[in-house]
Design a protein around this nucleic acid. Sequence first.
DNA 1: ACCTGAACACCGTTCAAGT
DNA 2: ACCTGAACACCGTTCAAGT
Lengths: 228, 228
Amino acid sequence: MTPAPHRRLSRERVLAGAVRLADTHGLPAVTMRRLAADLGVEAMSLYHHVPSKDALLDGLVEAVVGEVQAEVAASGEPEGWRARLRDRCLSARRVMLRHPWAPALISSRPSVPPTAYLHYEAILTTLVDGGFSYHLAHRALHALGSMALGFVQEVFSPVPSADAPGTDPGAADLARMADALPHLVAMAESEAHDAGDPVLGWCDSQAEFEFTLDLLLDGLDRARVLTT
Amino acid sequence: MTPAPHRRLSRERVLAGAVRLADTHGLPAVTMRRLAADLGVEAMSLYHHVPSKDALLDGLVEAVVGEVQAEVAASGEPEGWRARLRDRCLSARRVMLRHPWAPALISSRPSVPPTAYLHYEAILTTLVDGGFSYHLAHRALHALGSMALGFVQEVFSPVPSADAPGTDPGAADLARMADALPHLVAMAESEAHDAGDPVLGWCDSQAEFEFTLDLLLDGLDRARVLTT
DNA sequence: ACCTGAACACCGTTCAAGT
DNA sequence: ACCTGAACACCGTTCAAGT
């Protein structure tokens, strides 16, 4: 918002500014020109600290992955592979909730930044220490997939949630689709009714995330025991 | 490639052209001006069949979802909720392999096109017919998440695969990281060694997809039995 | 060394004009 | 009704020039 008064630019300040811009106005607002203006500088000045827009986007991913590492460290790693992995995925999710633009950005990048490999190495170490063979650990890494980065799946959201209030079809829309989508409408009504519990709301999608995570962890545990 | 000789434009021809352009030159190449040139027409002509670039992108998602429905129909639906769901996810994956740009596009869209709800309704119907309560079916829908659209998770790919030959770190890069990422390097070597089997290759990531899919379906089956 | 300003080749889109 | 061409407000980026 307020053009930063500092005179000295740096890669860190550029990336921090880009993160802030994406958080407040969305990823499309992250423009070399707009970012520069936000930093109180000319567009071309950015190129002294970042080689290109593409590199800026890579830096954005790097910054988010770094936040995940910090969040994991701050949450104090528990004992046992299952709890550690669970904790790491939930930490990652908290970071993604702070930066809703991050999942789409990360999956659109052609390659993951080198620092992300530290994150995967940590997961892999936890798995191997937990008794997984490399082969099964590899499968586990893929199975965890986007959960490992805490991706909030909004691919599907039929039930109005506090997470994304504006993007769901309203009750009126659902009523109009009722004959084409009978089960979807019935489910939405049934779930909305159950949600009288005030604890729910955004917690709802937290519960979905944990349900899926536990489903995967349970399955991986079973596969691990079978091969031991 | 060859500018279409047809004189008459239509929404269908515009969308088909956009899909073809994305397939051959990637999503960034899908530009109003370039798409128009590809269709042998002026940029502004497109606006008579599509209200905006944003609507064009929505149409692109719609086209891909439509292809998924067609692929499911073509594969002849098997008996039983588990086999039907499995078949549907694998069909979706085949479509996404044909359009590698689609997953990133879909997850970057603020909302899913109305036609996608037919896809989810079909999944939900299969679940309900299979004995799932609405509550558990809702969780299942979220758990299946991106698998339901056949997303090819390339978030993580430490082992060179035929899927994305250029994007992985080469053996040289891995050797350089060896001290920072011991397990990742060891795993990559171990897996590369096992892959002497000529059947593997792109099949490898097919196997990963099916492993994860079965992990989820097994877990959902267990949850279903518990609540019955 | 870092920052600037003008310039170039692109974008999406509006609008008045053509048929 | 559909298509066009010029124009406008934006992009990312090159380059020569300033300090």
